[in-house]
């Protein structure tokens, strides 16, 4: 299960968050934990450089893309490698929508599109689509090219 996908800006403010199967009362804890993790480790990280951690039985893969840091949390079959796949899909979709690693402004300008991409990539805790070109078509309700 992919437990959470989280986007935050440089100051650690949440831009988008999606939780799956995480009780509401635990979300605050995850939010602060992830943002602190990023604050401690993402400084000086290159775009799309993956960082990884585990906390209890849960895996976390996170990275930075332009002004935005992205965190993906998973457990069981979504271990660090599966999550790195997920985060790769997410970063390439975001870059595709924004045209480049986004500034915060650009990210917010494309907010609706990014939400749609996320909706195509992760569906209630499961990875659904993995190719950016297909995702780009799907969010415009176009069928995939290979079909």
């Amino acid at each position: 299960m992919i437990l959470a996908v989280l986007f935050a800006n440089v100051e650690g403010n949440i831009l988008i968050e999606r939780f799956h199967g995480v009780p509401a009362e635990e979300r605050l804890h995850w939010r602060s934990f992830l943002v602190k993790l990023g604050a401690d480790n993402l400084k000086g990280a290159k775009n799309e450089e993956l960082l990884v951690a585990c906390h209890k039985s849960v895996y976390i893969v996170y990275t930075v893309l332009g002004d935005v840091s992205i965190y993906v949390v998973g457990k069981d079959e979504y271990d660090e490698l599966a999550l790195s796949e997920v985060i790769f899909v997410i970063t390439s979709a975001v870059k595709d929508v924004c045209g480049k690693p986004p500034t915060e402004r650009l990210f917010l300008d494309k907010y609706g599109r990014i939400c749609l991409c996320l909706d195509e990539i992760v569906w209630k805790g499961y990875l659904e689509n993995t190719e950016k070109d297909r995702i780009k078509r799907l969010i415009r309700l176009k069928p995939p090219t290979e079909f």
């Binding site: 650690g12 403010n13 949440i14 943002v35 990023g38 402004r105």
Partner: peptide
């Protein structure tokens, strides 16, 4: 540490940088 829970509506001087959701 960064403040994770603040709503993202803080003012910015730079016109080009302000949030579309300001």
């Amino acid at each position: 540490m960064a403040q994770p829970l603040v709503k993202k509506d803080d003012d910015r001087d730079d016109e080009a940088e302000y949030s579309p959701f300001l």
